[in-house]
């Protein structure tokens, strides 16, 4: 239990640092703004209590807000991810998954399942985030294009990082 808790904290710090120090500095284009920190919320165990997930997502967003001078923005967006993740998992996971207490990952659920899962929740996150960021519907289609391109880019990074870091987790 303590080990689990420590793993969460280390992973949280690691993901936030990657987001702040590496991903935020890529700055390819104004249409490619990947936010991969939600992978922390995505990879929480399926058996974790929903209120815990929601609280943790808001906390993750709060930390991101602190470091990007955008009060409430990341909090609102990642809160949505945390809340709707529960519904998606209830729908997409079998009883065995819950019994085995898996964490959603490519190693545990397969490439296609995870990609769809990441794609849907990242899309939700980026939609809320980018529309709240511009805070108006003036540039609706431009923002929409920004959402789509950034989502694809984020999911690409998330999937690649899964393949890199979490591949041998099950065989341990």
């Amino acid at each position: 239990m303590i080990i689990d808790f420590l793993t969460f904290i280390i992973r949280f710090v690691f993901i936030i640092l990657i987001q702040l120090l590496v991903i935020n500095n890529i700055e390819l284009d104004t249409y490619l703004n990947p936010y991969i920190y939600i992978v922390f919320i995505l990879s929480l165990p399926v058996t974790m209590k929903p209120w815990m997930v929601v609280s943790l997502s808001f906390f993750t967003g709060l930390v991101m807000d602190t470091f990007s001078s955008t009060p409430g923005l990341h909090m609102a967006a990642s809160g949505f991810v945390g809340y709707f993740r529960n519904f998606y998992l209830e729908f997409a996971c079998s009883k065995e998954d819950f019994e085995k207490q898996i964490s959603p990952a490519i190693s545990s659920k397969g490439f296609v399942w995870f990609t769809v899962y990441a794609l849907l929740l990242t899309l939700l996150h980026h939609t809320v985030l980018f529309y709240l960021e511009i805070y108006s519907l003036n540039e609706f289609f431009r923002t929409f294009f920004r959402v789509i391109s950034s989502t694809l880019f984020s999911v690409l990074i998330i999937v690649i990082s899964q393949l890199l870091f979490f591949k041998n987790k099950e065989s341990r």
Binding site: W51, V54, S55, T70, P71, G72, L73, M75, A76, Y83
Partner: peptide, 22 residues
């Protein structure tokens, strides 16, 4: 509905500070 209430309250809070900031 405590999860929803938690979600709703926190979401409301973040919208309020976002609104104030903007």
């Amino acid at each position: 509905y405590y999860t929803f209430i938690l979600f709703f309250v926190l979401e409301l809070f973040s919208f309020v500070i976002l609104y104030q900031y903007n």
